[in-house]
Amino acid sequence: MRGGGPGSAVGPARSAARVPSALLVPAAAGLVFLLLPLAALLVRAPWAELPGQLGSPQVWQALRLSLLSATTATALCLVLGVPLAWVLARTDFPGRRLVRALVTVPLVLPPVVGGVALLLALGRDGLVGRLLDDWFGVTLPFTTAGVVVAEAFVAMPFLVISVEGTLRAADPRFEEAAATLGASRFTAFRRVTLPLIAPGVAAGAVLAWARALGEFGATITFAGSFPGRTQTMPLAVYLALQNDPAAAVALSLVLLAVSVAVLGAMRDRWTAGVGA
């Protein structure tokens, strides 16, 4: 954007030429590193078997379940995560730094361990799960709700971190201005802050959705694997890998295509919304 002597024509070719090779070379290597496995998947895909795979109702069942649970988990992340991000960004209480660090724990926890932790907390015999069972007769493991819980657990830190960062960058004085106009903190949040940070929330939601869609370890540990109920695409891929790697690759491609399509559509829509 800036730079370039007086009278220098700023065009794409010229700005590309200006990228220093110290950055360009690792950048290109990074891109290749990210895309090479994807390319391998495409090259080695059993294209001949693909139509057969796509014809099987199990694939669509797993895909439907994946999209449904990832979207519901993202909604759950939004409902709980945005207020959490606001509290972390806008209030001061003892131990706030610790709480902030704890929020990121699911990021570093191996997902399978996360699943075990969820079982210990929300399982039929878990700390809280026991009460849910006794009082409401609700058990989460082996249910679609359990899949949503596992995915939300793993995905929520992405949303919270993203939204908190946006909130910190946003000018808190808009909330003060709203307060002087008679808005309660909640009204200020809803009518002023939320619209201002909408792009950050959208970005966080996309991250969370993508993470939830690919979730495997916590899901299979907490919710098990039953076709149509808890067997999401990643689980189906993993099980197919056991004795039919070709089918696994085919399933992966379906998941990949759908997620790229959805993410691309959302991105277009969201950037268009910002520009308007």
Partner: peptide, 10 residues
């Protein structure tokens, strides 16, 4: 702030 009859021009 929100319950004070005070207007502010920033």
């Amino acid at each position: 702030a929100e319950r004070r009859p005070v207007g502010v021009v920033f």
